[in-house]
Amino acid sequence: MPADQQTDAPAKARAVAALADVPREPGAKKPDPILVVDKVVRRFGGLTAVNVGHVEIQRGAITALIGPNGAGKTTFFNLLTGFDKPDEGNWAFNGQPLQGVAAHKVARRGMVRTFQLTKSLNRLSVIDNMRLGATGQRGENFWRALIPGLWKKQEQDVTERADELLARFKLDAKREDFAGSLSGGQRKLLEMARALMVNPEMVMLDEPMAGVNPALTQSLLGHVKGLRELGMTVLFVEHDMDMVRDISDWVIVMGQGEVIAEGTPDEVMADQRVIDAYLGAHHDGAADPDADPAADTAGPAAPAAPAAGEPAGPTAGATAPKPAKEDGQ
């Protein structure tokens, strides 16, 4: 699936071209932002989990949000999608302010998320999981639900669309099974397919590849790229740097709740600030005191950083051999 991206992927080419002239710095202005975030702060007691000054997400591109564990990526996701409320700050989706908007209304406006821990609705069938995603269903009103004639036709249309998506995600054989009987990877696929039932403009994927076996990973990657070709904007959190490199047009790096770097995948992975954030500022034992602001913030929390060394992606991924494997496929 990923092999023919260059030829059949006009959206990728467009996204790459649009982002070519964007300055490589935190909070860089994008030519056509779908989401603009300003000064969003979330504190848990004395801990400032998220403190994002300014971030813009380019429309029609795949943007990766990376950073060590505890960098505030998921909290940032929760804030943007209305699942958590920030202490201060504002953000706009398609030019409309989103702060204080309830989670379900955020979804209705076209920004739909998935979860790090997959939330399949276990005791519902796969097809019912899908049908649930459709918006504006007449039969979801209490009184109209009592009269099947009012919603049967719409239900057929919804089911048809659900079946098409299931076929695209190769889950059609599981149509009548309980979602709880699917494997972990299949649930990830189901969750993504279900999110598409909402007809979103922007899809927010929280660690879409976590716990998915390598064979299914390729298929998931293909689907994420497919979203961009369908005109959707994708923002995703991921730890696996090979995947970030493979599919993202732009990478935003968070550390200690702040955005510390932005750029294309290769540039970001070579960035000293990013390496510092993952491995601790003094990993080479010789960081100069007047380095850069990120090194200062990384300093006090140095004990936390080694835990973040686990997804040792940025340095490992930055070396040449691994990407070659994927180009070959």
Binding site: T81, F83, A102, A103, H104, K105, A107, R108, V112, R113, T114, F115, K119, S120, L121, N122, R123, L124, D128, N129, R131, L132, G133, T135, Q137, R138, G139, E140, N141, F142, A145, L146, P148, W151, E155, E191, R194, A195, M197, V198
Partner: peptide
């Protein structure tokens, strides 16, 4: 019986399974 085979009932049963998932799909849980 009428309600639980309708889309309304589907939302209700989905809330039993995981209300955050239902919220993320645009339903007022």
């Amino acid at each position: 019986w009428l309600l639980m085979r309708s889309p309304w009932g589907r939302v209700i049963k989905a809330i039993r399974e995981d209300e955050d998932a239902v919220r993320s799909l645009g339903k007022n849980v």
